[in-house]
């Protein structure tokens, strides 16, 4: 867009990079220092021998923790809150239905963060050791075999493939930040009245990402490569949702009683929603 000045792009890139660093859960140096701490064979076996539902619950908790940081990242991006969330929630929801029923109708605002898991997968490349094919999980570096008892080997191996692939692009922190923001803005907001505003912000973020890539002297074509990853990310997340519904059909009570509310709000539109706030 010709209406965006270089100063504006620079400002947006700085805002997004700063937001990323403030909310990144772990510092890269911390993660890199720990790569030698892989799970021992007996620890791997202990994860493998956990009942399926216990491992699912553990992973749901870990994903939810990571997502809480992504939500905070989103909130700090200039323009994100103004788009719809706070304004829309209060204008559309609260007066009409009352606060309690607003919380029940999670669909009102969860669309905006439907791609938060995609951002978790993007951020995962910081915590990924491509040499050993391991990822930081529950205090140490874990290979795909740690997740065996989940019963979704295909999803796990796709997630590890994605991690390895993204690592091979050697993205810097500012590139990860801008790409995360771009992924977040690709969320499907089917209900949103101000769709054009979202598209405009996404275009700006894409330009800021391009600006950062040029500034970092990255090779041509890397932007296209990154944009292509968005569909891979979406496919991973869809697969996660499928696995979750299969799991839920076997263990409905475990999900209802023991899975974090935030996780249920984001990944099961047909789940019972969180309890209303008094």
């Amino acid at each position: 867009s010709p209406t965006v000045s270089m100063a504006e792009l620079e400002h947006l890139a700085q805002n997004i990079s700063k937001s990323h660093m403030e909310t990144c859960q772990y510092l890269r140096e911390e993660l890199q220092q720990m790569t030698w701490q892989a799970f021992l064979q007996e620890e791997v076996e202990s994860y493998q021998s956990k009942p399926r539902e216990v491992m699912w619950q553990l992973c749901a908790i870990k994903i939810t923790e990571a997502i809480q940081y992504v939500v905070e990242f989103a909130k700090r991006i200039d323009g994100f809150m103004e788009l719809s969330l706070r304004g829309d929630v209060t204008q559309r929801g609260a007066p009409r239905f009352g606060w309690g029923s607003l919380v029940c109708s999670g669909a009102l605002y969860q669309d905006d963060l439907s791609s938060s898991l995609e951002v978790v997968f993007v951020r995962m490349c910081r915590a990924f050791d491509p040499q050993n094919n391991t990822v930081y999980f529950d205090g140490k570096y874990a290979g795909p075999d740690v997740f065996k008892s989940l019963g979704c080997d295909d999803l796990i191996s796709s997630v590890f493939d994605f991690g390895k692939n993204l690592c091979s692009m050697h993205l810097s922190e500012d590139e990860i930040a801008l790409f995360s923001a771009f992924v977040l803005m690709s969320a499907d907001r089917s209900w949103l009245q101000e769709k054009l505003k979202v598209e405009k912000l996404q275009q700006k973020i894409q330009l800021a990402l391009q600006h950062v890539l040029q500034k970092n002297h990255r090779e041509d074509g890397i932007l296209t490569k990154l944009i292509c990853k968005v569909s891979t990310l979406r496919a991973l997340c869809n697969r996660h949702t499928e696995k979750l519904s299969a799991f839920r059909s076997l263990y409905p009570d475990i999900v209802r009683a023991h899975f974090p509310p935030l996780y249920k709000e984001l990944f099961g539109s047909d789940f019972e929603q969180a309890m209303p706030i008094e």
Binding site: M21, E22, T23, C24, Q25, L27, Q68, Y69, V71, E72, K75, M81, L85, R86, V89, L102, V103, G106, Y109, Q110, L113, P260, P261, L262, E265, L266, A274, I277
Partner: peptide
């Protein structure tokens, strides 16, 4: 146990 709405409306939640 947090919900999405609480996270969104809270001033500050998760930062390093």
């Amino acid at each position: 146990k947090v919900t999405l709405l609480q996270l969104l409306l809270d001033h500050k939640n998760n930062e390093r």
